[in-house]
Computed example of a mutant assay.
Amino acid sequence: MVLSEERKALLQTQVELWNQTLSFMKSVALAVALDLRITDAIRHRGGGTATLPQILSGIGINPCKLASLRHLMRVLTIAGTFAIQPLETSSGRHDEPVYKLAPVSCLLTGGDVSENTTSSLSPMLSHVLYPFHDSVLSMGLAAWFRHDEEPGKCLYTLMDGVTLWEMVDVSGGVGGAAATIAAAFPSLKCTVLDLPHVVAKAPSVRNVQFVAGDMFESIPPANAIFLKYVPHDWGDDKCIKLLKNCKKAIPSRDAGGKVIIIDIVVGSSPSDIKLLETQVLCDLHFMEIGGVERDQQEWKKIFLAAGFKDYNIMLLGLRSIIELYP
């Protein structure tokens, strides 16, 4: 797919705007790091370095939060709060990442009375960052990390008692994307699948039919399936279940069957630091509702688990177009 320079500029502008909008998540991440005393957990280990499991143990958090801690640390390393170095294995390969203190984090000591902490900025920073501590913006992220009685619940559910999807559907299930596709390609017949209460409000759109159902149960047969901003709302198990249903609904690759996904691929352009930062900030933001923004290896893992054989990724600004083949 070839984009004009004008469209490329527009996509880059969108990245810039999202970066400005989500920059507050860096303050949220720093507030959580101070609250959990991640700096102390790293500093107190021999050599001043630690892996994720070691940090988890050092801050006394349930192992079920390991994946979430990885996503938090990804934001903190991109922001420069901590540094990361690869672990050299005996075979010469790099395995699990090891975190160490960056110049910034050397000023974030917890303030143990037995240590010289006169240069620590933690007390002042904690005061300044207090609005992010338990605010609607952070949704009590530090408290959620400590909460291990209901490990399967995202912090949104713990705070409100229901999932986001039990309150309002925000996936655009009334056919906006399908209507645009049908208008651009009049020969196509499009079907929109969504929950019954969403479909009931759908408008009449030419060449677009609406089907009430549950994508985790079954998907109507089609030559191609389009998932726009859907997988990032769900954890791996749910995504694998969804993609397995997609695979059942489409023909073989030789017959033209494929799944088209529009979503973020973290690190899709490693040299673009602004893009990478925006992607990981999106990831931390979506973690609040139990969602996740995945890098290519994480996408590959769920594709293979769902039984797909091949995929292709095309960068499209903040997000990417993923073509997935059975």
Rank of each mutant, 00 (worst) to 15 (best):
Met73Cys: 04
Gln297Trp: 10
Leu87Met: 14
Asp254Gln: 15
Ala305Ser: 07
Ile313Thr: 04
Leu316Met: 12
Pro220Thr: 09
Asp263Arg: 05
Pro53Asn: 03
Leu141Gln: 02
Ala200Phe: 03
Arg43Tyr: 13
Ile59Val: 04
Thr39Lys: 02
Asp236Pro: 01
Gly213Ser: 06
Leu121Cys: 07
Pro86Trp: 04
Glu149Trp: 04
Ala200Gln: 07
Asp236Trp: 01
Ile250Pro: 00
Asp148Pro: 01
Leu324Ala: 11
Ser204Arg: 10
Val230Thr: 04
Ile42Pro: 04
Ala178Phe: 08
Asn245His: 12
Leu188Tyr: 03
Thr89Arg: 15
Asn19Gln: 06
Ser4Arg: 07
Leu125Gly: 01
Val28Phe: 08
Asn62Gln: 09
Phe210Met: 09
Leu22Trp: 00
Leu34His: 04
Lys300Gly: 10
Lys258Val: 09
Tyr130Ser: 14
Gln14Lys: 07
Leu318Asn: 02
Leu10Gly: 06
Arg7Lys: 15
Gly173Glu: 03
Asp233Gly: 12
Lys241Arg: 12
Gly235Val: 07
Trp165Met: 15
Ala50Cys: 06
Met287Leu: 14
Gly58Arg: 01
Lys8Tyr: 08
Thr118Gly: 12
Asn223Ala: 15
Met287Thr: 03
Asn62Phe: 12
Ser105Asn: 07
Tyr325Asn: 07
His44Asn: 12
Ala102Thr: 02
Gln54Glu: 12
